[in-house]
Amino acid sequence: MLRESMQSSGREVDVAQVTRGFGEAAEVPHAAALAEFAEAVVVRDAARIAAARARLRAVLGPEGLVDAAATAAAFHGFVRLADAIGIPYTTAARGQDVPELREAAGINAFHRVRGDA
């Protein structure tokens, strides 16, 4: 979905950042701050969340912060639906997530793909 959203505006993204992390030089504006916020919410570190939230609010404004929080929250649900019901992942993003893309993104190292869960 990230790749598709970038391609819609004629740009490319290094999908390895999905697993490696997004640096300051990422192609998406404020990607490093967005990723840090997402990571802090996942690990439930209140101090880290507060710092990341302040940084995001400064660059995105209050409405942007709310939508960043809402998006991070939404994927706490999606991942659980997908992984608890065992839906097929080969059709994700309408079949756009082909094996080559999963390999480039580092997703083929995930437990479900390796079959070692």
Partner: peptide
């Protein structure tokens, strides 16, 4: 939303990856 679609997907992708979610 008040963030761009690629910004939305950066968050989505990182949360999913940290959960080891292939989908």
């Amino acid at each position: 939303r008040a963030i761009s679609r690629p910004q939305t997907e950066v968050i989505a992708a990182r949360v999913s990856a940290l959960h080891q979610c292939v989908y």
